[in-house]
Design a protein around this nucleic acid. Sequence first.
DNA 1: CCTAAGCAATAAGTATGACTTTATTGCCAT
DNA 2: ATGGCAATAAAGTCATACTTATTGCTTAGG
Lengths: 250, 250
Amino acid sequence: MGGGLHGKVLDVLGREIAAGVHPPGSVLRTDEMEQRFGISRSVAREVVRSLASIRLVVGRQRVGIVVRPREDWNAFDPQLIRWLLAADRTAQLKTLAELRTAVEPIAAAAAALRAADEDAARLVALSERMVATARAGDLDTFMAADVEFHRLVLRASGNEMFAQLHEVVEELLRWRTGHGLMPEHPRPVAVRLHCEIAECIRSGDRARAEEAMRELVAEALEGTLAGLTSTPAPRAAAGITATPGDRSFN
Amino acid sequence: MGGGLHGKVLDVLGREIAAGVHPPGSVLRTDEMEQRFGISRSVAREVVRSLASIRLVVGRQRVGIVVRPREDWNAFDPQLIRWLLAADRTAQLKTLAELRTAVEPIAAAAAALRAADEDAARLVALSERMVATARAGDLDTFMAADVEFHRLVLRASGNEMFAQLHEVVEELLRWRTGHGLMPEHPRPVAVRLHCEIAECIRSGDRARAEEAMRELVAEALEGTLAGLTSTPAPRAAAGITATPGDRSFN
DNA sequence: CCTAAGCAATAAGTATGACTTTATTGCCAT
DNA sequence: ATGGCAATAAAGTCATACTTATTGCTTAGG
């Protein structure tokens, strides 16, 4: 994970800002940070640089480090996404689920045009594996295949911005299984759609790949929103939060 | 470019990395940076922090600042987007146009559900202004309204990640006008689609708003791709041009 | 002869103090 | 009231000394 001292302090401050402890417009002063965390100016300044890079703050001479309005924040930064998830999981998951709904169908269409044969074959293999594990009720293995499936579609789209969103999709999928939202045997229609998507990408059927993915994510979005409203007090969190050892390095 | 020294050096190094001058895997050492730019250790380290925050590099003790593989870069960072545009405008615009195609229809659908009356009214007003300026052939004013229109749709979607992409859309729109890619009088169908989208968002017709936006961005994507392949060397667009692939404006 | 333990060299990471720049604030004169 | 002119406060920059972790070599042990 990142630099020892720097990373720890950054994480604390990032969480606090994301959680609204320091609301937009409020100011932090570097010498306060030094005192509070017992760090030197070098470290404090570098933490500020990192926060500034995510557009959470801006340093102004004679006034201090001011927290920027929320709409300025770089909402796509993976670190910030984690902080926001920790602060208000419900709202952030909703945002992420909607983003996924937008991107994956187009990514599937692009993959149908541009995917290498090797990747297409792997997608078909993964979809078959999902059929098997769904039947067996092996949810963990199913999810692993599911995560890998979507990661591969996004990568095969040939669009580096789409590819980057695999973390977002992964977070959503993990959250669903971690919350018992998935039925013990994943819905057959979902499994079938994965197979259809893989086959369409393999055969280059752009339109059907897009449409099948649209169906899939529409259903997933529905399920996610239902889960979010029905669990106002999300409990326990089976290791999603990533506090201990910074997951997601890539 | 905010910070004085820091910002300048960061910009140079960011451009270079984005352009492939320092390919992934290569290492930069901070003392080299100090010499090259005539800066102090503090500044050099903070520049590294900024680059690390965008995931362009990672500092490792005893080895140096190593450039990370391209797929690790945070492709959504506005700064990096600018650097990539400067390095390879064609490829980056293609990526951005595709992203836009994915997001805007869903954003329009969301806006139809969630937009405040005030914003919806403003969208209708903007679409009417586009009708007028299109008829008059006032392309600059037309584009300004167009930019504002899409910015507002993204904002009204209520999804902060969508809202953040207004810069991307703006970049695409500006590029098209700056290239004489659009006809003197924007195509009526595009103008009409803007009106339809505004009206659907106002009336809460989610499905039609999404579909109309899908038509709009599909046409825009076509036009952008055509412009990218047909104009390898951007120059001052003599005459009305309208290359064969000329598409409407958005 | 090859593996494993230890050592030294190196470059990032941290700490500290002095100095510079810049924007705000408030006073003063117009 | 308006305009400009200091005083000032906090970020920004610089220079240097010290710490820590990694790598690669060297040597001890099997």
